[in-house]
Design a protein around this nucleic acid. Structure first.
Lengths: 329, 329
DNA sequence: CTGTTAGCGCGTTCAA
DNA sequence: TTGAACGCGCTAACAG
């Protein structure tokens, strides 16, 4: 492994000079700069980021905490978008991001996780899909030992920023758009999980619409499950005018149920995933930019690591109509 | 940040003694060991793995290269299993694994990737789902600068190990089992992608069965796409006895097509994914243990990093029948 | 069994 | 503008 020392020798300068060239410092003459760069090229020198980090004390890695078993809004596709968005941005910002699954954290206390992260030089954390029931991660947030960004859970403090769309408004928007077409009054709302933050917010959205439009809304928990949504639909949809679902997956289940019941009802979903299979229908849904959300999360965690204070970041959403062609895998 | 130095001072021993205790070296009296451990606990000392790596020159991180856009066998679910398996094992083996998506490598030459990896102290690489067309990654493998493990592509050299099930045999097995039930003769085989290694191997499997059972097999490329498989089925399945698909996704497409055509044909898939939606039917498929494959890959890459030579590792597979209840999300 | 010493590869003063 | 010297936190000889 060719080190900075050899480059220095080769270029006949001091190590520190090479370092300066490497890091684009001023006060290096063009002449020596060129000498150094030539040497770097000739020796095919590659700086060691580990040593660099140690020396400059700029550790600061970011841990992305994902819970794949927690089938909330949709499926793994979303996680991949999250990962992609974060890793791309991290690379762009010269940050190291490590992937951590909750299964690897299972059984650990907040202290143990803290220790683990610190030993890995992790100073920033992004939590995707926090559950209300997750005492440990909530503790981690409360302790403020890390710069935290929480996706889709409304938590902020001086070391914690939350990032996500306005689920309340989004649910309101998509439901309203769907309902207006057929002037529906009786709504079947299939919500998510009891312990989910987004479930609550989305529910608030439909409640607001209920009041505003004087609707009658029946709420059932679909657990973000296609099958549960199917069964709920089979049971309750008959004398409803519309089925509003808190996820695309559940919307698919509802649609299939309606087909089996041989009745038509408008259905709308949430998330805008594309791996839905072709149901041969169309439906409204909320399109979230998971890649962008995750990318923003990295920027935010960096802000926090640089000492900024936590805040709330609302990402834009849109209501789109998914057709057959959109939902082909 | 409390360092080893402070621990040493606190315990009134030398730094090296602390280091020995930390790394479980012999030649430390129980007495001093206890002193040190107490100090560690009191100060809540956390070793810095970065400094440790630098000092011991035990860098050796491993890069997991994933290509999410490459929708080969199935969907993101498989990638998540891969990630989980690798990260769990890496943690167990005290290796650092970093997630790299091909999109981050796009446009880079093999040399640039090499430089990038080396700068990140990556010395081992796991490649998931290599395409025959991927000249760059193949170059990376050929250059032997890294310990390489390739999943599902039959490449080995002294620095490269391949890991995966025996796709040829697996395809043979599942097809045979499916065909025997109804004594089928006319087979529609929906293969994967032209540039895929597994496509070729699985095709060999069906070809072997064709000869052995004196079948008539029509082969079409389904591109691992549900829709393509659907269209192929609509076009060709009528006068066939069975539809053998090189992926579960395509099998779903085929099944749905058959339902629309209102004819029954046995269908079999490949991979054993669980996010198929409920088609209300059953089918045979090859169950792959993606978690285990990835976990094994990490062990293998470690072997290579430790100087061992490349080899071929065949993972076990099984043929299972998926029922309605199995494929509920 | 313990402590001293010499680095690992690099960033960063501070004199020269 | 340059370079010697120190230190980041830790490991690994080696000497005592």
């Amino acid at each position: 492994m060719v080190s900075i020392k050899e480059v220095a020798r080769h270029a006949d300068v001091a190590i520190s000079t090479v370092s300066k060239v490497l890091n684009g410092y001023p006060n290096v003459s063009e002449e020596t700069k060129k000498k150094v760069q030539d040497a770097i090229r000739e020796l095919n020198y590659i700086p060691n980021s580990i040593a660099s980090a140690l020396s400059s004390k700029q550790f600061g890695r970011v841990a992305m905490i994902l819970d794949p078993k927690r089938q909330t809004q949709a499926i793994d596709q979303i996680f991949m978008q999250y990962l992609l968005g974060a890793l791309d941005k991290a690379r762009e910002m010269n940050l190291e991001a490590i992937t951590v699954f909750t299964s690897m954290l299972a059984g650990m206390s907040a202290e143990e996780i803290t220790r683990y992260f610190l030993s890995q030089s992790v100073t920033g954390v992004i939590i995707y899909g926090l559950s209300k029931e997750d005492k440990v991660l909530r503790r981690l947030i409360d302790e403020r030992k890390f710069a935290c960004v929480v996706i889709d859970a409304p938590m902020t403090n001086d070391r914690t920023t939350c990032v996500g769309v306005d689920h309340e408004q989004a649910q309101y928007d998509v439901a309203k758009k769907t309902i207006l077409v057929d002037n529906c009054r009786q709504v079947l709302y299939i919500a998510g999980k009891k312990d989910g933050y987004v479930t609550e917010q989305r529910l608030n959205g439909i409640r607001r619409l209920e009041k505003e439009m004087n609707l009658s809304v029946l709420v059932r928990l679909g657990e973000f499950s296609e099958l549960a949504a199917r069964n709920i639909t089979l049971k309750y949809a008959k004398n409803k005018d519309v089925v509003v679902c808190a996820s695309d997956l559940m919307a698919i289940g509802a649609m299939n149920a309606l087909i089996d019941m041989d009745i038509f009802r408008p259905v709308c979903g949430f998330d805008g995933i594309t791996l839905m299979g072709y149901v041969g229908k169309q439906m409204n849904t909320v399109k979230q930019d998971f890649y962008g959300i995750s990318s923003t999360a990295v920027e935010e965690v960096r802000r926090l690591m640089d000492g900024a204070s936590g805040r709330q970041v609302i990402m834009p959403h849109s209501v789109v109509k998914l057709y057959y062609k959109d939902i082909i895998r």
